[in-house]
Design a protein around this nucleic acid. Sequence first.
DNA 1: TACCGGCGG
DNA 2: TCCTCCCGCCGGTAT
Length: 877
Amino acid sequence: MEQIKNRFVIIDGSSLMYRAFFALPLLTTESGKYTNAIFGFAKMAVKILEELKPEYAAVAFDKSRHTFRSEIYKEYKGTREKTPDELSSQIPMLHEFTKALGIKLIEIDNYEADDIIGTLANKAAREGFETMVITGDRDILQLIQPNLQIVMTKKGITETEIMDETAFKEKYAGLSPKRLIDMKALMGDKSDNIPGVFGIGEKTALKLLTQYQTLDGIYEHINEITAKKLKEKLVTDKDNAYLSYKLATIVCDMPLDFIPTEYSITPDSHALKKICEEYALKSVWTSLNKISGIGEDTAVVMDEDADKYLVANKNMQQKVISQIQTNGYIAYLPVCTGKVPHITCHGLMIASSENNQAVNIFISEADLTSIAGILADKNITKITYDLKSSLHSGLTIAGKTIDTMLAAYMLDPSANEYNLENLSDKYLEREIASYDQKEAIPFGKTAYLLKSVPLKELADILLPLLQEKNLTNLYDNTELPLEKVLANMENIGVYINSEKLQNMSDEIGSTIETLLTDIYKLADIEFNVNSPKQLGEVLFDHLKLPVQKKTKTGYSTNADVLDALRPYHPIIEKILEYRMWSKLKSTYLDGMYNLIDADTQRIHTTFNQTVTATGRLSSSEPNLQNIPVRTDAGKKIRSLFEPAAGYDIFLSADYSQIELRILAHMSDDKNFVEAFKLDQDIHARTASEIFDVPLSDVTADLRRHAKAINFGLVYGKSDYGLAQELNIPRKEAATYIKNYFTKYEGVKKCLDKIVTDAHEDGYTTTLFGRRRYLPGIKSKNFNIRNQNERMAMNTPIQGTAADIIKMAMIATWQEIKKQNLKSRILLQVHDELVIEAVNEEIDILKSILINTMQNIVKLSVPLTIDINTGKNWAEAK
DNA sequence: TACCGGCGG
DNA sequence: TCCTCCCGCCGGTAT
């Protein structure tokens, strides 16, 4: 077995065992033995050997805690039906497996695994061994020191995060690892029966420690603490704090020496094979086969069912490849981990057949080269699911592609999810089992490790359905090619000036602090301003301000309500300000800072192509489609987005009034069309029409009202809503709307027709045929029916705009590529494209954008764009 | 996990 | 599917 010299790994057997037990459903062997704990533990142990390649290793268990801890059981009982016996029956298997792996197992009377780990790790690290502790227990983090890293298991068990001193400090506001003990002394820990100081939580503890470094420090300076209640709490619970400190400290000096030779790893292949067979740990055996020195180097048949998969050996790969060549298509699902732009592909699941039976073959990472030629072969059709993720995985994909996820989205864009299990259920009327097999692939992306990948069958059903619904054109020529563009944009990311970002966050932080003290003073009480519930109580019970509106759960405290309360109390102003700053800080500054990629220093959002019901894209992690712009404070945040080194300028191209222009085209309304043809100010013209004044006499206020109607119109706004927005009587709003539809008769007719059609068809469509089903449109419930009718009116407009910009994006991207430009598209914000550009290319970019965006479709009114440039995104507006 | 509130188009 | 405006994402609190 290949090894890294001097690396010593200690596995927290107790922690992993509990984690595995809770994270996995109860698995049993044929003989009825429970195996979930051993299964998870074994997978983890194998992963450690495979990835960390230690020279020495040990597994520590609690000897005294072999009976299931009742408090943990209580904690989980509500959600999991597992009993203590089911876990304790697996402990001997864990021991057996550890021995077969040739790893020394340590349990010592009267000591917990923590103490064994603390003692051994400390000694090894000090003697210069590169020591790593694998655990799911955060307490262990206190051991971190030079030469000692903690590998924390995250969600589930096989995902891990390596914590060293730097990582720790980053996560815990600069505290050193030892201070974790002080933290716990203050916070306590219910699950470990550590009391802490009553009423102190993580935030307060962190604040105190940042100021006074240690628990001792806090009590030495106890008189400097000005917050009365806090001081009182600390004084009252001083004994508890020090008791907790003791309880939280891991023993590092038990009588146990670190003698390296005792911890050499000496696996026993025979014993391992026997255990894997006996406890049905087929996947563990498969992974063991990948570690040289253990297992056998042959193909492993995972299952004897029709739905089975094979980890392909060389022979099988040849067979599969020739089968693919005969078929002319490959149906595959990549198995990837990591985040853009650091995706690793661990292999491909290939849907194949053997003796006319469905077979899934797993080509592992090491063998990917054998399939690379197929993927790059223009003559072989690729049938896959979520093509964008394939494109991120570094595979070169050529030829005709079929994306079953995208096809399913287009057939019904309102569905909640398009995972393969659902699609198979819906279109093939067949359930895909997923669990045991998805665990069977070593460390893959669990979501798509399914018992079968019926991509070809799905494609055979979905594509004719697209045809039947006239969606083929949009799918082939817009949605599918768009995936490549989006993958490229995501991969490039956008640079954000993190230094400025941090400064801004700090500044706003102190602004917020000041506002808080003001608010507390004005309210004469301290409370959590972030809690609408508490805020409501303060405003309406304590300060007795007039209640404006209620929500389902209590008083409403939203911006409208607060705005109306302004004259009643000076606190309102402060709260509104507080809301604004804390929104900007938490969502945009701190939230985005956490998503800056360490390597690229850029933010790599995800553009979701199968989320919205209307056909728009959405953006997440982070959402870069809702970066502030409307206020000055917001613009400052937008100004943090800058061109990176090698680029000079941001260029933004946005469609002017695209939705209203689409409405003009669809309705063919005489007035509307004329306005756009003459390139008039549409809102001013509307004001002139509905208020019956000459264009030259339209005041700013009249224009504002007209604008509200124009926009509200495409949402199906009611007189009630319009009255609310413009703060005018409902009757007046009703008159506006009536006048509007008298003047714009074509619009009225068009919207009415859309609604009638939707009633008849059960769906509505965009100009390019995109469909949205509206199952509620025939509802007897007035509200639901009305809501569906509003959707029917809005979707063709919003969706058509989405279709158009998608087509324009593809054309722009292709032209940029064709001309070999350095500049590149970074973002799409519904009607805007943001480009990172070099100065020399600005002119050519402008002409490309005008050509593509304005001319990509021919409507009865012109589509125009505004182009702006600037040193950052805020300036390019 | 549900709800509120707030940011964008 | 749930009161009067469509489409989203996200952070915070309370449960």
